[in-house]
């Protein structure tokens, strides 16, 4: 074989370890999940058989499925815009000359380095009725204790606030990186023109940060679907599924109720949502962002 043709062989040989692992743990399970969702759950007496869309019918009739999907949406709406706004504010403040700047930056970033499970443990104490920190502070102002995580109306907001605390600092560093790329002459020019800070931010900085915002947005949406660790410590999805999220429901279906085909069906929905986001990113956002 000629030297030029050897590159095909070398290329594939070098890729082989990664390819085997990726096929085994990403591509094969993705396809197997989709196939499983069309089959009934087998047991020693009755083997699993093809049942078409029955699992999907079961799913659309399942009120918990819709509840969990709605929760995921509210969780995303509750966490993402606020985290992004805070992240921009943090980045702007830390990007300037500020006494103790590295300490401030460290304070913002530290929650990011903690595992979600530890964050949940810390916040669990704040939310505990009566003896928790929030109720104690509220008690000073004459409010009575409240079971923040036990009340279906407050459990999701409580988790949202905790998630914002954990994520804002992570998004901040991407804005910080973007801000460092923006030439300082722009701010100087705006200042000479007499533009107010707010005007400069709205008309100059924010548009320039748009690519970062979209990058962060995609990551934040993905995270809102993938990160459910806190539920294990804080609520187990309760009360009455008020804080349950799709991935946690998949875990419950598979490993608590041992209904693997239903878990597969739910996973297909999650895969569909992720695929939709991937396509949106490649075809819509990428085009609109790189106008520069």
């Amino acid at each position: 074989m000629s030297r030029a043709n050897m590159r095909h062989v070398y290329g594939w040989l070098l890729l082989m370890p990664a390819a085997i692992l990726l096929v085994a743990f990403t591509h094969y399970p993705t396809i197997a999940t989709i196939i499983d969702s069309f089959f009934s759950k087998g047991n020693p007496v009755r083997p699993s058989r093809f049942i078409g869309l029955d699992n999907y019918r079961l799913m659309t009739d399942d009120p918990i499925f819709w509840k969990v999907l709605a929760n995921n949406m509210w969780f995303a709406i509750g966490t993402i815009p606020t985290s992004i706004a805070l992240a921009i504010a943090m980045a702007l403040m830390v990007n300037k000359a500020l006494p103790g700047r590295s300490l401030v930056r460290m304070a913002y970033f530290t929650p990011t380095i903690l595992p979600m499970i530890a964050v949940a443990n810390i916040w669990l104490f704040f939310y505990t009725p009566d003896i928790g920190l929030i109720d104690q502070v509220a008690g000073l102002f004459g409010f009575s204790g409240h079971n923040w995580l036990g009340d279906p109306d407050t459990v999701l907001p409580a988790i949202i606030i905790m998630t914002i605390w954990k994520e804002a600092g992570f998004f901040m560093i991407f804005y910080l990186a973007a801000l460092q790329q923006i030439p300082p002459e722009l701010a100087e020019a705006a200042r000479l023109e007499g533009a107010s800070r707010w005007y400069y931010f709205r008309r100059v900085l924010f548009p320039l940060l748009m690519p970062t915002t979209l990058f962060v947005l995609i990551n934040a949406v993905l995270n809102s679907f993938k990160l459910v660790d806190h539920l294990f410590v804080l609520t187990k999805g309760g009360p009455d599924n008020a804080s349950n999220l799709l991935l946690y429901y998949i875990f419950e279906s598979a490993f608590s109720y041992f209904d693997t085909t239903y878990a597969a069906t739910l996973t297909v929905v999650l895969l569909g949502l992720l695929a939709f986001m991937a396509l949106a990113q490649f075809f819509v956002l990428d085009r609109r962002v790189h106008y520069r």
């Binding site: 890729l15 990664a18 390819a19 990726l22 085994a24 743990f25 990403t26 591509h27 094969y28 399970p29 993705t30 197997a32 999940t33 499983d36 993905l222 993938k226 991935l247 998949i250 875990f251 598979a254 693997t260 878990a263 597969a264 996973t267 999650l270 895969l271 992720l274 695929a275 986001m277 991937a278």
Partner: peptide, 24 residues
């Protein structure tokens, strides 16, 4: 094509496929 197939894992991370991967 191989590179595109690699990038799939950026979206579909292993934690989403816990059920099948446990089986494997």
């Amino acid at each position: 094509i191989a590179f595109a197939l690699v990038l799939v894992q950026l979206m579909i991370t292993p934690e989403i496929l816990i059920v099948e991967n446990y089986g494997t």
